[in-house]
Design a protein around this nucleic acid. Structure first.
Length: 872
RNA sequence: GGGCGCUUAGCUCAGUUGGUUCAGAGCACUUGGUUUACACCCAAGGGGUCGGGGGUUCGAAUCCCUCAGCGCCCACCA
C-alpha cells in the first residue's frame, strides 16, 4: 500500500468527526465519575467564526479532551446568544434595504422576521466549530431565547424584583440614537475626540452685563434652565440673585450658586441643561430647575429646538454656532480635546437622556463575588486581572437592564389603570392579573386591562445565568443535572467581557445558588492583526477562519494559534504559525510512514543500540510528561504544546527514530518494533488534545481498534519514575555527537566515511552504541598521548581526538588558543569570587562549592589545552 | 485624573524564592546537505550591555528608586 508523503488533513477530518459523533463520545450524562464541565461563551447566534472564536474554542477543546482522557466525565455545553442589540440591528438593516421601517410592521411581524433571520443564519457558527474539531455535547445545545431559557430569565427577574433588587427609575441613561435604545455603562466606550470649547455670552436680565459660559455642546442651550456659578467666585458676585437670558430661545433662567462649579474650569460659569447631562441633572434636582428634553429619539431636535426642529444634533451644533456668531453672543472658540461616549455596538455618540428604565441593584450582589475572587475560590488566569476586577466590583453601579428593543426577553412588568406607576411583575400575564387584582382589590380587572412593558432585557441579563440555566438550574434548582455539573470547572473567554459577563456570572452564581459558577477563568488574549490592531469585522482584517482550516487543516490552525497564545497576552496573528502547525502534522505523518515501512523480522535478536535508545526515550517521555502536566496545571497551554512539539519532533523523530532505524535493506526485530509503536502511540495520547484529527487517524492506523478503544476515550499517560542518570548520559552523548558532526562538516568528511575516535582515558558516560551509529564511528580507541595529526575537542572536561590527514591544523591551534584564553578569563572571574571573603562567608555552602568545582574544572581544561598546544 | 501591567535575539515570548557556564525557546536568518519518512526535511552556525540611569547585595534580567516609551482598565468634570 502506498501512503502519500504529504499529509492531507481534509481527507481525514470529516471522517473522524463523524466517527466521534456517531459513537457519541461527546455526550455526557451524570454518572459515578467526577464531572469536568465547561460552558461555552455563547457566540452571537447569527455570527460567523472569527479568529477570537477559533482561539477560544481550541483552548476549551484542548482542556475538555484532556480531561476526558484523564477519566473525568467531560461535558462541554455549546450554545448561542440571541445578541439582542446586534441581531436587531442586522434585521433592521435588512428591512431598511427592503424599504421597511420596523415601526411600520410592528412588534409581532418584526419578531417573525428576526426569527426567520435567526433560522437562516443561526447555528452556522456551531457548524464551523465542528470543523475545528470541538468536542461539544451537541445534544445539550442551548439558545438564550429557547423556551426554558427564557422562562429562567423571566423567573430570575421576578424573583429579584420581589427581593427589591430590581427597580424602575427615572434616570439619566446612555441613549444610542442610532439603535434607539438605552445602553448600560459598560456598553459605552469613551473615545478621545477633538472638539471645541465655545464661550457664549448670556445677557443678564435688567443689566448691560453678560455672563459668559463655556460649553462643548452649544446645541443644548435649547434645554438650558439655569446658569451656575460658584458661591465664592468674587468675579461673579454681582450676579447673585439675578437672571440670565439664554440666547436664541430668549428664555429667562436663574443664575444659581453651587459649589459643584469649578473656579478654574472654563469661564467659571456653567450652563445647566438638566435633561441632557448627568451633573446638570444633579443641579436640576437640587435647585428644582425645569427639565427640558430637546431631542427626539433619533438624535434630532424636537420642537424645543425652534427652527432647528428635525435637524440632527451635529448639524444643529454648527448652525447654532453660526447664529450665535451673527448675533454677537459667541465670544471665542478654543480647541478642546475631551472624551466622548460612543455606543459599543453602533459607534454612535451616545446622548445622556432622562428616561424610565429598569435597574438592578448591584452592591449586595457584588460582595460575595468580590470575596470569591479575592480568596481564589474563583481563580482568574492570569492573576493580573484580579486588580481590574476588584476595582470595578468595588465601584459597581446599578445595572440598567432594560433596552428599547424588540428582539429579546420582554420585561415581565405589566401596567394597568391610567398611571404607569401601577405595575405588577409576574412570570405570566395571567399571574400578573391575579397580582394586580390583589393589589388593587379590584376583581373586575381583565387581561385586557394589563399592558406589558414594551422593553426587553439587556442580552447579558440572560447570559449571566448561562452556567446555571443550561442545566435548568433556575426552574428546577435541585435537579440532578445541575447538581452534578454545577459548579463548572473552566471558563475560557476574552478579558473584554470580564465585566459584561464574567463578573456578572460570578454574582448570579452566588445570588441564585450560593455557589461559584466555575473554579477557573482563563482569560485569553485578543487576537490582533500583524499591525497590532484588534481583529474585527468592521475593519475587515480578520482572515476567513474556514479558509484557514482548508489551507492548513484544523489541526494545523489549532497548533498555530496555541503556539503563541500565552494567557492574557495578545496574539499578533501570523499565518506562518498555521504553516508551522501544518508542518508539524506533516512531520508526524511521515514519522508514521517510516515506522510503517519497516520490515519486521520475528527471528532477529533484539538490537542493543535500539534498546538503549528506547530506554532513554522512555525516560525522556516521562520527564516531558511531568513538564507538560505542570504546564497544564498552570494553564500554560502554549508551553504544554511546545513541550509536546519538541518531544515529538526533536526527541522522538530526530533522535529515537534515527537510533532505531534499521540499516538500508535490513529488517527490524519484533521486540524493538513493538516498543517503538507503543511509544509512538503514547506520543499520540499527548498530542490528541492539540491535534485530535491526526492523532486519532494514526491511532487507528497502527492497529484496528474497537469503538471503546478510540483515542478520544483512551487514557492520558501516567507518571512513572524517571531514570535521570540515563538522561544525563544521553545529554553527554548528544553533545559528543554534535561535536563530531561539526568536525565532519568543517573537515568535509562525508557521513559514509567512518571516523576514528581516540581518547586518552575511557569516558564512562557516553552511550557508545548510539554515538557510533549516529556519527558512523569505525574505531573508538584508547591512546597514550595526544596524536599529532589530529583535531581535539572536549565534552565537559573529557578530551577526544580525531586523526585527520588534512594539514590545516593551524586552524585547530587558533581555536584552542581561543578556548584557552576564554577558560583562563573564566577561571580568573571564579577565583576572584572565591577570594572574596564576604562571598565565601555569606553565600550558601552549595553555591561556594559549586564555584570551587567550576574552578577545578577550568583548571583541568586549561592544563589539557596547554599540554596540547605544547605538543604542536 | 486614578489604577494595573509591560519593555529580554530580526519577530513572538519563557526566565518560579536574587546564586549551576544563565542570558533561553520557537519562528526567521546564515552555511552545508539527493544518508531510500519528511526540502512542510536534515545537520551545523551567527545573533541580545535583559529600555536608560542610580541604589541595595559577596552576587541583580530577577529586589528598591527614578526617567523614558508602550498597552489596558476605570472616571460625570463644562
Amino acid at each position: 500500500m502506498s501512503i502519500p508523503s504529504k499529509f492531507t488533513p481534509s481527507a481525514i477530518e470529516q471522517k473522524w468527526y463523524e466517527y466521534w459523533t456517531e459513537h457519541n463520545y461527546f455526550h455526557s450524562s451524570p454518572d459515578a465519575r467526577k464531572a469536568y464541565t465547561i460552558v461555552i461563551p455563547p457566540p452571537n447566534v447569527t455570527g460567523v467564526l472569527h479568529m477570537g472564536h477559533l482561539m477560544n474554542n481550541t483552548l476549551q477543546d484542548v482542556l475538555i479532551r484532556r480531561a476526558r482522557m484523564r477519566g473525568f466525565n467531560a461535558c462541554w455545553v455549546p450554545g448561542t446568544d440571541h445578541a439582542s442589540i446586534a441581531t436587531e440591528a442586522k434585521v433592521v438593516n435588512k428591512l431598511k434595504n427592503e424599504g421597511i421601517d420596523k415601526t411600520d410592521i410592528g412588534r409581532e411581524a418584526f419578531l417573525e422576521k428576526a426569527w426567520d433571520w435567526t433560522h437562516e443564519h443561526g447555528g452556522i457558527i456551531l457548524e464551523q466549530l465542528k470543523k475545528l474539531g470541538c468536542s461539544c455535547d451537541w445534544e445539550r445545545t442551548k439558545f438564550t431565547l429557547d423556551e426554558d431559557m427564557s422562562k429562567s430569565v423571566i423567573k430570575v427577574f421576578v424573583d429579584l424584583y420581589e427581593k427589591g433588587l430590581i427597580y424602575r427609575g427615572f434616570r439619566m441613561v446612555h441613549w444610542d440614537p442610532e439603535a434607539q435604545t438605552t445602553l448600560s455603562d459598560e456598553e459605552v466606550i469613551y473615545e478621545e475626540k477633538q472638539g471645541n470649547l465655545y464661550h457664549i455670552a448670556y445677557a443678564v436680565e435688567n443689566s448691560d452685563e453678560k455672563v459668559v459660559v463655556a460649553t462643548t455642546r452649544p446645541e443644548t442651550l435649547f434645554g438650558d434652565t439655569a446658569v451656575a456659578i460658584h458661591p465664592n467666585d468674587e468675579r461673579y458676585a454681582n450676579f447673585h440673585g439675578k437672571k440670565a437670558i439664554v440666547p436664541l430661545v430668549n428664555r429667562v433662567v436663574p443664575i444659581i450658586k453651587d459649589d459643584y462649579v469649578s473656579l478654574e474650569m472654563g469661564t467659571g460659569c456653567l450652563k445647566v441643561t438638566p435633561a441632557h447631562d448627568e451633573n446638570d441633572k444633579m443641579l436640576g434636582d437640587k435647585h428644582k430647575l425645569e427639565f427640558i428634553d430637546i431631542f427626539n429619539s433619533d438624535g434630532s431636535l424636537n420642537h424645543q429646538g425652534l427652527h432647528f426642529e428635525g435637524q440632527d444634533r451635529f448639524a444643529v451644533r454648527k448652525a447654532v454656532v453660526k447664529e450665535l456668531k451673527t448675533n454677537g453672543s459667541l465670544i471665542k472658540v478654543t480647541p478642546h480635546t475631551h472624551k466622548v461616549g460612543t455606543s459599543e455596538r453602533t459607534k454612535a455618540v451616545v446622548e445622556p437622556r432622562l428616561s424610565d428604565q429598569w435597574f438592578l441593584r448591584m452592591e449586595s450582589l457584588a460582595k460575595p463575588a468580590i470575596d470569591a475572587v479575592e480568596n481564589e475560590d474563583v481563580q482568574l488566569v492570569p492573576k493580573k486581572f484580579i486588580n481590574t476586577y476588584r476595582h470595578w466590583m468595588n465601584n459597581i453601579r446599578d445595572w440598567n437592564i432594560s433596552r428599547q428593543l424588540w428582539w429579546g426577553h420582554q420585561i415581565p412588568a405589566y401596567y394597568y389603570g391610567t398611571h404607569n406607576e401601577n405595575v405588577v411583575v409576574a412570570d405570566t400575564k395571567q399571574e400578573a392579573l391575579e397580582k394586580a387584582k390583589k393589589k388593587t382589590s379590584n376583581n373586575t380587572l381583565t387581561l385586557e386591562d394589563l399592558t406589558q412593558d414594551e422593553d426587553v432585557l439587556d442580552t447579558w441579563f440572560s447570559s449571566w445565568l448561562w452556567p446555571i440555566s443550561v442545566f435548568n438550574g433556575i426552574l428546577e434548582p435541585e435537579n440532578k443535572e445541575v447538581s452534578y455539573y454545577y459548579p463548572t470547572q473552566e471558563l475560557v473567554t476574552g478579558p473584554d467581557i470580564l465585566f459584561f459577563w464574567v463578573a456578572r456570572m460570578i454574582m448570579s452564581g452566588y445570588a441564585l445558588r450560593n455557589e461559584k459558577p466555575f473554579s477557573h477563568v482563563y482569560l485569553t488574549g485578543l487576537v490582533r492583526d500583524s499591525q497590532g490592531r484588534k481583529m474585527s469585522k468592521q475593519l475587515g482584517n480578520s482572515p476567513d477562519a474556514i479558509k484557514l482550516m482548508d489551507m492548513y487543516g484544523a489541526d494545523g490552525v489549532r497548533v498555530g494559534l496555541l503556539l503563541s497564545a500565552a494567557a492574557g497576552n495578545d496574539l499578533l496573528f501570523d499565518e506562518n504559525l498555521c504553516q508551522q502547525g501544518k508542518n508539524f502534522a506533516n512531520k508526524i505523518w511521515n514519522a508514521f510512514r517510516l515506522v510503517q515501512s519497516w520490515n519486521v523480522d520475528e527471528n532477529l535478536s533484539v538490537c542493543k543500540t535500539a534498546a538503549v535508545g528506547l530506554d532513554w526515550y522512555t525516560a525522556k517521555f516521562q520527564q516531558t510528561l511531568a513538564t507538560i502536566d505542570d504546564h497544564f496545571s498552570k494553564y500554560r497551554i502554549s508551553d504544554a504544546l511546545m513541550s509536546t512539539y519538541k518531544l515529538i519532533w526533536d526527541d522522538f523523530c530526530s533522535w529515537l527514530l534515527e537510533i532505531v532505524k534499521p540499516a538500508y535493506g535490513a529488517s527490524i526485530d519484533a521486540e524493538t518494533y513493538q516498543k517503538v509503536c507503543v511509544l509512538f502511540e503514547d506520543n499520540l495520547r499527548l498530542l490528541h488534545p492539540f491535534m485530535p484529527f491526526l492523532s486519532e487517524e494514526l491511532w487507528h492506523a497502527f492497529t484496528p481498534r474497537t469503538k471503546e478503544e478510540a483515542l478520544i476515550v483512551s487514557s492520558w499517560p501516567t507518571q512513572q519514575d524517571i531514570d535521570i542518570e540515563l538522561l544525563d548520559k544521553f545529554d553527554y552523548s548528544a553533545e559528543l555527537i554534535s561535536q563530531l558532526r561539526t568536525i565532519r562538516k568543517k573537515q568535509n568528511i562525508a557521513f559514509k566515511e567512518p571516523i576514528h575516535l581516540l581518547e586518552t582515558s575511557e569516558d564512562k558516560i557516553s552511550l557508545r552504541l548510539i554515538v557510533q551509529k549516529l556519527v558512523n564511528i569505525s574505531l573508538w580507541d584508547l591512546t597514550d598521548a595526544a596524536p599529532e595529526q589530529s583535531l581535539s575537542f572536549r565534552v565537559n572536561a573529557h578530551e577526544y581526538f580525531v586523526p585527520v590527514t588534512a594539514s590545516n591544523l593551524e586552524e585547530e591551534r587558533s581555536k584552542m588558543e581561543e578556548e584557552l584564553s576564554y577558560q583562563e578569563g573564566f577561571l580568573k572571574s571564579v577565583q576572584k569570587k572565591l577570594s572574596n571573603e564576604r562571598f565565601v562567608a555569606n553565600a550558601p555552602e552549595q553555591v561556594v562549592d559549586l564555584e570551587r568545582k567550576k574552578a577545578a574544572d577550568a583548571e583541568e581544561k586549561i592544563a589539557t589545552l596547554k599540554s596540547r598546544l605544547n605538543a604542536f
